[in-house]
Design a protein around this nucleic acid. Structure first.
Lengths: 336, 336
DNA sequence: GTTTAGCACTCAACATATGAGAGTGCTACG
DNA sequence: CGTAGCACTCTCATATGTTGAGTGCTAAAC
């Protein structure tokens, strides 16, 4: 079923008005602001048609109309005009990705900062997991005053731990053991690594240092573990949809126990660019009233990082998409 | 002015009832629960006296009584019975601090996790600032595939950054320059260090690597910078005092722009053990309705870390104090 | 002197009524 | 096909009782 020109105009105006005002749109105001020389009654008829098509909803009998999920979808797919980025933001994005940094973990946190500057979305990011982090080096550095720093380097991140050197332990022998290990296990995925390593390590190093080393490796796995990072909470919570205390509580909970957000991000971000999920298109009930603009970053065939901009369904899709596209391009370039 | 035995009993019962129920306490219920064989009228008289002494408040003419700030203070100082910790929590605390770890930054984040498990307070923590972090080592490690890891070690934390080696740059010459620098500036406070270092570095290392190194050092300062860390937000926001949307918004804002919390923590935590601040005793208007149980950790005469448990004035002081005392002891021992 | 019973009074919270305002659907007409 | 007009609906805000918990005070009892 095709929409004629005017219906599209009306739908688009309703979406954009509603995004801006967060208030249902009535026929009178729309007839005025639309500037087409038609009366409110005509608009009302068009609205009734759009509602019959499932593109608009009524909050109650006598408030204005609000876009439905399908209405937003149509808007995003066909009606929306891509909006150019602000110069300032554009420049900041470019400059971040022109640097020499290759540490994905670091890039994730910096990118998150960038995404949250838009000032109205909840920015979420996911770094590479232990599955696709590969060991490059494991070492112990002298750190003065009887302490050492354990350092683990992978292709995606670095981890460290400052420890008291146990009495009677030789730095040299520790280093030798670690070097040998590094050599042997170089390039191995961190996920497979641990089991093998635990046993190899146990042979060479004894006592408390062994315990600490194992604890350190475990933490490296945990840190490398895919845990969603979040920025821009207050902007997000400031959205008018969270005015009621019950809603705001739900949103806070959603953010705190980030499992749901992680799931959302994983489902929404994929290969090949930026994609949008709207309301009911999300699986879990907690996110049925939210939308997400998301993308994944690929390196050598694997997705090593994922990002998303989350807002109420009434979010500014054009703005979010422009930002996401730009960051996507920058990051892909920087990483590959 | 001395309070007789019964007045103390009444005050204590009111505080503890109110802490548990968050509802003002009336004379009738109190007469019943207190189990003293006196009538509500007698309790009413006692209450009136306590109110005259400034130890109780009335939310309005005809609700029950609520402790005033001074009432809480008297309760904490004289009336409260120290509560023993739960075994489980106690064991977890001990085991964390029996390890070899000396990295304060790491200890801060682990301790914060511990504090937030109490499940009703907002836990805040502050690590050592650049002022009291002293350079131990600055190095560049080969990290494979044309990349290097810059590593900076201080007595309190370690920082790192994974970089692409610029074409034509020699790892050896970079290392030499960094070693020389480490040697020269060893033990210097990170705060004074940078200025001097910037210039020294500029001489030895050129081009993009210089930029990246400077950026790295700047970030080290920023990371080492005293920035308050927060855990347990959702427990805190679940407190009934934040039922109204306006209040909850205020609380969220307080948490997000953490400057006020940092100030609060700095003012409340000091040398020599755990202390309590109640309501109006806090300076800034945003925290007038909150209380904090806080302590600082000393090492060689300097406070290198600070922690606080924040709740509404109606918080469970006995529980918070027990937890704080235990963590304080454990940390002091582990660090010294 | 202390305690208690009794009573009038106060105030928040809840429910109910009322009116205004915004918006809709429908019908009849140009 | 578009428009004017009108009855109708529903939310929101305001006003008005009503209820229940709690207080303060007085006078009598212990």
């Amino acid at each position: 079923m095709e929409l004629d020109r005017r219906k599209r105009q009306v739908l688009r105006a309703i979406v954009e008005d509603y995004v801006a005002s967060a208030e249902p749109i009535g026929s009178r105001t729309l007839a005025r602001t639309l500037g087409l020389g038609v009366s409110s009654a005509t608009i009302r008829n068009e609205m009734a048609d759009l509602e019959a098509l499932g593109l608009l909803d009524k909050p109650h009998t006598s408030a204005g109309r609000v876009p439905s999920d399908r209405g937003y979808r149509l808007y995003v797919d066909e009606l929306m005009e891509p909006r150019p980025m602000e110069q300032e933001a554009f420049r900041r994005i470019r400059s971040l990705y022109l640097r020499q940094v290759r540490e994905i973990d670091y890039l994730v946190s910096q990118t998150l900062g960038l995404l949250s500057t838009a000032g109205e979305f909840l920015a979420v990011g996911l770094g590479p997991g232990p599955r696709n982090a590969h060991l490059r080096r494991l070492d112990a550095l002298e750190a003065g005053e009887g302490q050492i720093a354990l350092v683990l380097v992978t292709d995606h991140f670095v981890q460290h731990r400052l420890l008291e050197m146990p009495d009677g332990m030789q730095l040299q022998s520790l280093q030798q053991a670690l070097w040998a290990l590094s050599q042997e296990l170089h390039g191995m995925s961190l996920l497979r690594l641990t089991r093998t390593m635990v046993e190899a390590v146990a042979r060479e190093i004894k006592g408390r240092m062994q315990e600490e080393l194992l604890a350190f490796l475990e933490d490296c796995l945990a840190t490398g573990e895919e845990r969603v990072r979040i920025a821009g909470t207050s902007h997000f919570l400031a959205q008018p949809e969270f005015r009621e205390p019950e809603r705001i509580r739900g949103a806070v909970q959603l953010i705190e126990q980030s499992g749901v957000l992680q799931e959302l991000l994983l489902a929404a971000s994929g290969r090949g660019g930026v994609s949008v999920r709207i309301g009911e298109e999300n699986r879990s009930p907690e996110t049925r009233e939210l939308s997400i603009v998301a993308f994944g970053i690929e390196r050598q065939g694997e997705i090593v990082a994922r990002f998303g901009l989350i807002g109420p369904k009434r979010m500014d899709y054009a703005k979010a998409l422009a930002l996401a596209e730009e960051v996507f391009k920058g990051l892909e370039q920087a990483i590959n």
